[in-house]
Computed example of a mutant assay.
Amino acid sequence: MAFTLEHSATHRSATYTLSLTAHDDGQVTLDLRGRSADGAVEADGALRVPQAAAAEVARLLTRALTAAGALGGAARRRGAAPNSHAPWTSELDSALRAQWLALGESTPAGAAIRELAAARQRSPGSIRARLSRIGCDPDVPGRSLSAETAELIGKPLTAEKAA
């Protein structure tokens, strides 16, 4: 007895529909269709596999689609900054330190951190954490961490950071 299951999901402005049909001959057909809000085709394809291999094929498809999504940035958490998890270089650290220390102490720290984060396409939390790692006081723009404060928060100053 043949049967069909159908599931739809919307991502951004496109709706995707996946239909699975089990046939009497022991085969399974997966049919994927996707259309944007304006009707443009976003996805179109079919795959026919033996029913006995369906679970293994599903695992392979999951791995492949997850990897493809990561390559295109789709696996990034919703709302994550584009440069989240990008490595910090000594040049990036030096530029951040110089910009922070050039600010006046009367500058609101939160606003300064948000501005630095936006310019670097990083989250405010990552900028705040990085400031203490490079010897800057994240609570007071324009101020370096004192050796005592750095030790207290577990970020001992190196000669480079104290300079």
Score class of each variant (00 low, 15 high):
Ala74Arg: 15
Ser106Pro: 00
Asp38Val: 14
Ala109Ser: 05
Cys136Trp: 03
Pro124Val: 01
Pro87Met: 06
Thr158Ala: 08
Ala64Leu: 13
Arg63His: 13
Ser19Phe: 00
Ala129Ser: 14
Ala81Val: 15
Gln27Asn: 14
Thr89Ser: 10
Arg77His: 09
Lys155Asn: 11
Gly110Ile: 03
Ala43Asn: 02
His23Trp: 10
Ala162Ser: 12
Ser94Trp: 00
Ala81Tyr: 06
Arg48Lys: 15
Lys161Met: 09
Ala70Glu: 07
Gly34Pro: 13
Ser146Ile: 06
Arg35Ser: 09
Arg143Met: 09
Arg133Ser: 07
Asp139Pro: 05
Leu157Thr: 04
Leu96Tyr: 04
Arg63Ser: 15
Thr66Met: 14
Arg130Ser: 05
Thr66Ala: 15
Ala68Pro: 10
Ser13Gln: 10
Leu30His: 00
Leu131Pro: 03
Thr17Gln: 08
Pro141Thr: 08
Ser146Pro: 03
Glu160Ile: 11
Arg97Tyr: 02
Pro87Arg: 06
Ile113Ala: 04
Ser106Trp: 00
Gly72Glu: 05
Thr15Ser: 09
Ser94Phe: 01
Val41Trp: 01
Pro87Ser: 08
His85Gln: 14
Gly125Asp: 12
Gly104Met: 00
Gly125Ser: 09
Ala9Gln: 07
His7Arg: 15
Ala98His: 01
His7Gln: 15
Pro141Trp: 10
Glu56Ala: 14
Thr15Glu: 15
Ala9Tyr: 02
Gly154Cys: 07
Thr21Pro: 08
Leu152Arg: 14
Arg143His: 00
Ser8Val: 13
Asp31Ser: 08
Ala162Arg: 06
Ala68Ser: 13
Gly135Ala: 00
Leu18Cys: 04
Trp100Asn: 11
His85Ala: 15
Thr66Pro: 11
Ala37Asn: 05
Ala68Gln: 10
Arg78Cys: 06
Ala162Leu: 13
Leu101Arg: 04
Arg78Pro: 09
Asp25Gly: 05
Ala119Cys: 02
Val49Thr: 04
Lys161His: 06
Leu96Arg: 03
Glu56Thr: 11
Leu145Ser: 14
Pro138Met: 07
Pro82Leu: 05
Ala46Thr: 12
Tyr16Ala: 04
Trp88Ser: 02
Gly154Gln: 08
His7Glu: 13
Pro108Thr: 00
Cys136Ser: 02
Arg12Ser: 15
Leu157Ala: 09
Val28Pro: 11
Leu103Met: 09
Lys161Gln: 15
Gly45Trp: 05
Ala102Phe: 10
Cys136Asp: 08
Asp137Thr: 00
Ala9Gly: 02
Ala53Lys: 09
Leu152Val: 08
Asp137Ala: 11
Ala117Ile: 02
Leu92Asp: 13
Ala112Pro: 00
